[in-house]
Design a protein around this nucleic acid. Structure first.
Lengths: 231, 231
DNA sequence: GCAAAAGTGTTGGCGTTACACCCATGG
DNA sequence: CCATGGGTGTAACGCCAACACTTTTGC
């Protein structure tokens, strides 16, 4: 076969990990321990291992950096493949975006790293609307992921992956408001969301909030599904 | 850098080229001249050359198989990267989808091929709803491309790329009907499309059709642009 | 004059938006 | 008792879908 005569580019998987923390949409970034862009925050990413798919690699990066085992949402975003995106040579990046509950995020020090680097590489959450200067084209990747995330909220149920199993309606609404970056009308939101038939009320009640207790809901299914339109 | 210890997968670019011919949505396929899947129709694709981006490679495949130089629409679709999709070894495919006018399609024999293979490799158009058995996972790729194409028609102006510069309203409507696979109401279609402000009437008139002559329209811009919603 | 496609408005229903007050609890 | 967020309905508007007849040409 001919393929031998071609020189394959390197292939990485980079993942944009979103979560909501303290009412703000944040992205998980790691300070690079090596050149190029040494010291700059970057998306967690790995080179593909032999015979490893991009999705497997993205899961590997997700697990090793966040401790998230499952329950989040993960999908392929786009493949960035410009010749010039990595000064070391042609490296294409299959990018993914992930949505995870903050409580599942057990941020870990990099494994198998000397302490000096572990300190530097330790992952941190950054608000998406106050991003620092990033390594490579990672800012562009995050911006695309954010567009995709907003679009997905409009016609899928993926918001389940950023909420706890039982949640108050106001928490659901806050997730939408935080991600969309605008306020929504409480009554209209309830009406619309209930009409989608994605969630059901439970017998759980959220108490201890110094205000009226809230009925808790759960998603009928915590698997991704698409709808007609939505918001 | 560590990357050296990883063995990169091979990287190809495969393109789903759509056009409308004789009122039917068709895809351009090439019969494979070599194993694996020798003799099966497949998407036109190429291995990435050194330092070549996926988009450049897709354009290269498009030009060499169809003679289309420009004017069509081309965008990245998805990256298929399962370990098992190519029996020869791990090969990831960055896939693209293209929309071209049929009249721009000058289907060419493969270059630099012995006649025996040229005959076999000669590209042909196949109706998307009567696809033969295809090589690799190419059927899956086409199905995804078709979903994307339908979605794009709903909120972008990309239909311009499958129409001639001047077109009758009925031709525009037919393009939508063929791609969506259902009839649309003539009056509602006109109303909705005109309200989008994407096209303008010209002084051209289409005569000689054994029926009432049609006013011809043109797109104000033949560059991709996105809108709110649409259909 | 007839076949064939072009061109043109109105109406009813449905979904979206805008909007304000009472309720249940914790402190 | 008061501060806090929970919970609820209605009316106006705009968008979308359904629908039929007249016009202009080629033959």
């Amino acid at each position: 076969m001919k393929k031998i005569i071609y020189e394959s580019p390197y292939v990485t998987a980079d993942t944009v990990i979103f979560t909501i923390q303290d009412g703000v949409l944040k992205v998980l970034l790691i300070k690079r321990a090596d050149v190029p862009f040494k010291g700059s925050p970057a998306l967690p990413g790995v080179f593909l291992l032999k015979n490893e798919s991009g999705l497997e690699a993205a899961k590997r990066a997700l697990r090793s950096k966040t401790g998230v085992q499952a329950g989040g949402y993960l999908e392929q975003l786009y493949t960035f493949d410009s010749r010039f995106r990595d000064p070391r040579g042609h490296t294409i990046s299959i990018t993914y975006f992930a949505l995870v509950e903050e409580k599942n995020l057990k941020i870990r020090l990099g494994k198998n790293l000397p302490n000096r680097q572990a300190g530097i590489q330790s992952p941190k959450l950054y608000p998406v609307n106050k991003l620092p200067r990033l390594a490579f084209d990672h800012k562009e990747i995050i911006e695309l992921a954010l567009l995709r995330l907003r679009a997905k909220l409009e016609y899928t149920n993926v918001v389940y992956s950023i909420l706890q199993k039982f949640f108050a309606f106001s928490e659901l609404q806050k997730a939408y408001e935080i991600i969309f970056g605008r306020k929504l009308d409480k009554r209209n939101f309830r009406k619309k969301f209930l009409s989608l038939d994605l969630i059901r009320p439970t017998k759980q009640i959220l108490r201890g909030t110094r205000s009226r207790p809230a009925k808790l809901y759960e998603f009928k299914s915590r698997k991704p599904s698409s709808l007609k339109k939505f918001f």
